[in-house]
């Protein structure tokens, strides 16, 4: 019997779930699941390449969901964290879940469960931050355009929110770090990749891609942000805690004027 083995998948969530399926099928107690291209295991470990299989992925998904709705969410969120070793953690989490008489997902006295919860929580927080911090700029061809650079791969998580809210305007949200984006064309949201010559931060330099009025509104917003501050209550520590500095470069209100 194989107790340990390295499974290599294509990086997609379905690919990962397929790997989990194979792991369970082969009764691996420890599955070392790794993304293609990031293989780090020792020279002598046995490896197997996993081909994404939607049906198998679906079976794992359904199995987990039948046990617990919060677990399935935790798993997906933790996966999007892209953290080193999250695959092994999730694998163990699913093992525990399937082998437990309650749904093991709420056993907060278990280290692995806590860890997955924490990862999922962090990704959830990033999702909320992106829903808050996206700043659209209106291009001359009437698309509201935003660049983002989130800590985790949250685009799939925020798509629905923006689709529901901005149903009557075209928009693009583009992840500069992961080099892909979402484009809503008034009908559906599609995944796109762009050849961006400039990354559009809140820099003072105006880009010809955007309308003139765009900069007027940024200016108004920037002004509003300042007038709504109560000077006698300034608390920069709290401010930075809520709006960490790494997000500033895309926020028009944090433009240095």
């Amino acid at each position: 019997m194989n107790a340990s083995k390295t499974l290599v998948y294509d990086g997609s969530f379905n690919g990962f779930l397929t790997a989990v399926f194979i792991g369970f099928e082969q009764k691996l107690t420890h599955a070392d699941i790794q993304k293609q291209g990031q293989l780090q295991s020792g020279l002598f470990a046995e490896t197997e390449t996993i081909f994404t299989n939607i049906e198998k992925a679906q079976r794992v998904w359904n199995g987990v969901r039948n046990k617990s709705n919060s677990a399935i969410k935790n798993i997906y969120f933790a996966f999007l964290s892209e953290q080193n070793n999250m695959e092994a953690l999730i694998y163990r989490y699913i093992q525990k879940l399937m082998g437990s008489k309650y749904n093991g997902a709420t056993d907060f006295s278990d280290d692995g469960v806590l860890k997955i919860n924490q990862l999922a929580h962090k990704v959830g927080r990033e999702k909320h931050r992106m829903e808050a911090f996206v700043r659209f700029q209106l291009t001359k061809d009437e698309v509201y355009f935003a660049n983002i650079e989130p800590d985790f791969d949250v685009l799939p998580l925020i798509s629905k929110h923006f689709r529901n809210r901005y149903a009557d305007q075209q928009w693009i949200i583009y992840d500069v770090k992961r080099k892909y984006g979402l484009f809503y064309d008034l009908n559906t949201v599609e995944i796109i990749s762009l050849d961006l010559s400039d990354i559009h931060t809140n820099s003072m330099q105006k880009s010809t891609a955007f309308t003139d009025v765009e900069y007027e509104y940024q200016d108004l917003w920037n002004n509003y942000f300042k007038s709504t501050t109560i000077k006698s209550r300034i608390n920069n520590k709290l401010h930075v805690q809520h709006v960490p500095k790494r997000y500033w470069k895309y926020l028009s209100e944090k433009k240095a004027v």
């Binding site: 509003y224 709504t228 501050t229 109560i230 608390n235 709290l238 401010h239």
Partner: peptide, 29 residues
């Protein structure tokens, strides 16, 4: 809810930024 492909919806309420005194900015006030 967003009606007939209009603009906007409401939900849990998002703080889009925070003032330098640390208060949530969610509405044009």
């Amino acid at each position: 809810k967003n009606k007939v492909n209009g603009l906007g919806d409401t939900g849990n309420g998002i703080c889009h930024t925070y003032t330098e005194d640390g208060r949530c900015v969610s509405l044009l006030k």
